[in-house]
Each structure stands twice: as structure tokens, then as C-alpha cells.
Nucleic acid binder design. Structure first.
Lengths: 244, 244
DNA sequence: TGTATGTGTATTGTAATATGGTACAGATGT
DNA sequence: ACATCTGTACCATATTACAATACACATACA
């Protein structure tokens, strides 16, 4: 897929690894050869080299090639700290809108706040980092739900069991997917509304950024907040190779 | 002729990646060349190829090579499910000891139970998966603390603030490190004692396996439980390349 | 301001290196 | 018994990776 980058073996090794990423349930040399279009003997050589480096594992059995432990180890060392990476961007967003900005991560079927820039016009109720929130009635929660598979979303919808109509809920999610932004209008907390956008890391962690405000003020600034949130998504997220 | 694994470029590319793993704060071509003993121009070629595959990132500035996003992406696909991998081993452990076996993960300065095999002699109080526990007064918690850095351990000790002496606590951890096993004797729950061992994944997640039992029975079976826990650590953990 | 040493980049002749066709030994399942 | 899969091994070939060398540009030091 990727354009040739200088060294043939490495391009091919990467192709093989990406092929394993596509299906990591245990492939054979032949399977990889067919899928990548490489000669089988070539695949064999390269795979052997990758196994020697623990980038690929051959768990004993036949036709059983998977991504290996060294990749996990490298990933652990290369993991970026989303909070500190996002910090300056969130501060900018807060300045632009003059509002509080929240960063939350999706974890164990919950939303967890992990960072917050407090706006100039301080709210009475501020959510503390570490605090957990539901997904189905918050802006950032719904933003994330719209990025999950429908079955996952429905699971969470059922678990949180707020007495809404499933079809209305799914329509809502569809609209969020289309616009790329979610809203909470006095739903989670009476008198507070919010808008939120979601993104995911290449490591498949889900994050959401939301801007809450007293509903009166929110409705006045709504268009402006939406605009800044969406351009934030372009500048800070779409531009960063670690996010999607 | 070939060192280590078959294909020279791949061996070298892996060396370079491991060098970046060692220090991912942004290295230069020259630095990598020196550290790996490879010619600078060779390092340049290989790094360029790795950048083209997004295994390495060059964040604009000079001397700024880091592990890239594709590694995170591969790691996400190759991540193993510790619970299902451990399940059969834990079942065996439960059969061997005739006791309940718990698996917990270290998360956000807490212990979280993620799996449990209920022993034949059922306890009255069973901990449910998902439930959180402190570290400083549980067997699996202390087992994990003994694998963390001293500063981390002390942080958690302070946060959980149970009224013990810090020096006694640190001595306890040292003993656990040495023996590889931790104990809780009527400490977390009166009448219940437990033994626990900890391990970590190559992705640097920390897990612990513990065996709790009513204190009377525990003291009778203590040696036997210890023996099986330790050999479990050899068989299931030290033998698995994903763990350490 | 000159010198030294760092950065990344580009070129190029050489031979070492990866290549991939071909063949083989076992499984597995038609 | 045949077809088709698995992984493994060999080895002549020239494609391929190799690394010395030179360059443009920063930064630091004296």
C-alpha cells in the first residue's frame, strides 16, 4: 500500500507486518505470500528474520504467524502522552472560545475526564479529572459512541439504560457521524449544554474534547463554538499522524 | 555469516528501533550511528526507509527521530487478551490448590479485578470482576508494588494512607522482591489471608495473580499454595514471551 | 570571526547481499 | 492415491544494499 521507501526488504517487511495487522488470527507463509503478492520463498526469508527479532511470533503450530511481543515493547516505549500533547491545543481552544475545555478518554464503557482547561468565565460546577461520566447523555460521550460500532453503541445504550427510544438514539448518532460533532442540551446536567468532538489514537484509544457552558450562553455562542471545535479537529487531530 | 537473524537490513533496522526504544526523546542519525556502531550513511538509509513506513517519526526539528505511529497501530492489532491467555493457567492453579484464584490489573494507582476462578470450597465473600482494591494491604497489590519504582510505591503508599510505618512498608516490599511472592494476613479483610505474585506484559501493563482463603485454612495450606504460585510464575509467565 | 563539530542530504562504484525459482518432506483432506 | 496445503532448504544470479566521500547548513566555542 505504502509507496516504496528506499529499501526493498524493509518495504516488504512492512507490507508483511501490515498484512498481519489486517488479520492477526494466525496466518501461514503461503497466505501472506498470496495476500501481498510476494513470492513464497521471499516471504519465508523475511518472516524468519522478523521472527528472529520477535516482531513476529510463530506460536508452535502450523500456519500460525502473528505479530510478536517486540512490537508491544516498542509501542510501550513510543507511546505518546495524549494529555500533554493536547494541552497546548486545548488551551488555544479555550482562549478562542473563552470557555472551559474538557478532555476525556473512553475506558471500560465509561467516560473518564483526564484533563481540563478552565475558561475565564468560571462555571459553578467543574468536573474534576478522574471523574467518570456516562456516554449516552453527554456531548463527548455521544461523540465517542458515534465512532464505535453500532453493536458496541447499543450495548452501552442498554447498560446505561436511560429511558429513551433506541431509534431516536441511533438517529442521533448518525447525525453526529455526519457532522462530526455532538451536543448535549441540558441532558446530563440541567442548565448546562455542551458540544464535543471525538478522535482516536492509532493505538485505538478513544478520546473526546468537549466545551460545556451554561445553556443560555451556550446557545448564543453555539455557532462560534462549533466552528472552533471543528477547526480544532482539523488542526490538532487530522494533522497529527498519531490520531484519526 | 549472518549475525542473529538471516537478513542483514532487518537485523540492523531492528537494532535501530531498539536503540530508539532505549531513548525515545529524539535522537539524531549520528547518535544512532554511534550507539549502534553502524556507519552513519547506513543508518540514514535505513531510517529513511523506516520513516517511509511510519515506524519512525521525524517531528520536523533537527535530531528528532522517534518511534512512529505505525508501531502503535501494529501493537493495537497484536495486543493479546491477557484474561483469555491466562484463563487455562489460572484454572490449573485453582485445581492444584483447590482454592479461588484472582487475576487483577494495575490501573490508575488502583488494583482492578479482571478475572476469577472460583475454587471448590467456595468463599462467602467473592470479589467481582471490575471491583477495585487498594494496593498497600492486599497480596496482589503488594506484589505489584514490589515491581514498581520506589518513588511510585511511596506515592501510592501516601495516597492510600493506611497508618503504617513507611520503613516497615519498604522492608516488606524488599522481602517481596526477593521472594517473588507477597502475602496479606488478615490485613485487607479480617479472617481472609492471601498470597500473590505479580508480572508485567512487554507492553508494561502490570498484573497480579492471588489466591485468597480463610486464614485458618490458608495457614495450613500456605507452603503448598506458595509452591504452586511460584511454579505458576515459571510455567505461565517466564515461559511466555509476552510477559516478564 | 574562524574552526570544529554537529545536523540532514546526495552521489556513486562496488560486491555483498537479498532474491526467488525450484525441490523436498510431512500433514491434511479430498 | 491425489491434490493441496504446511514449513524447510538449496544456490546461481544480478539486483540490491552498502558505506565512503562530499556537500550545505547550524550551532558552539575560542
Amino acid at each position: 500500500m505504502t509507496t516504496g521507501g528506499g529499501i526493498q526488504v524493509i518495504t516488504r517487511a512492512a507490507e508483511i507486518l501490515r498484512q498481519l495487522k489486517r488479520d492477526n488470527s494466525g496466518q501461514s507463509l503461503g497466505s501472506i505470500a498470496v495476500q501481498t503478492g510476494l513470492p513464497r520463498s521471499t516471504v519465508q526469508r523475511i518472516v524468519h528474520a522478523l521472527v528472529a527479532e520477535a516482531f513476529v511470533t510463530t506460536s508452535g503450530k502450523d500456519g500460525d504467524l502473528r505479530l510478536g511481543p517486540e512490537i508491544q515493547s516498542l509501542a510501550a516505549a513510543g507511546r505518546i502522552d495524549v494529555v500533554s500533547v493536547m494541552r497546548p491545543q486545548l488551551e488555544r481552544l479555550s482562549e478562542q472560545t473563552d470557555e472551559t475545555v474538557d478532555l476525556a478518554v473512553f475506558q471500560h464503557a465509561h467516560m473518564v475526564f483526564v484533563d481540563q482547561i478552565i475558561g475565564k468565565e468560571r462555571l459553578a460546577a467543574v468536573s474534576l479529572p478522574g471523574q467518570e461520566f456516562p456516554l449516552t447523555n453527554t456531548a463527548n460521550g455521544k461523540a465517542i459512541l458515534s465512532k464505535l460500532s453500532e453493536s458496541q453503541a447499543v450495548d452501552i445504550y442498554r447498560r446505561e439504560g436511560l429511558g429513551r427510544d433506541l431509534r431516536v438514539f441511533l438517529n442521533d448518532l448518525a447525525a453526529i457521524q455526519e457532522r462530526g460533532i455532538a451536543f448535549d442540551e441540558d441532558d446530563h446536567t440541567d442548565g448546562i449544554s455542551a458540544a464535543g468532538v471525538a478522535f482516536q489514537t492509532v493505538g485505538d484509544e478513544f478520546y473526546a474534547v468537549s466545551i460545556p457552558a451554561p445553556s443560555q450562553r451556550f446557545s448564543k455562542k453555539r455557532d462560534m463554538i462549533v466552528e472552533h471545535l471543528l477547526s480544532f479537529r482539523n488542526d490538532a487531530i487530522a494533522a497529527n499522524p498519531y490520531f484519526r
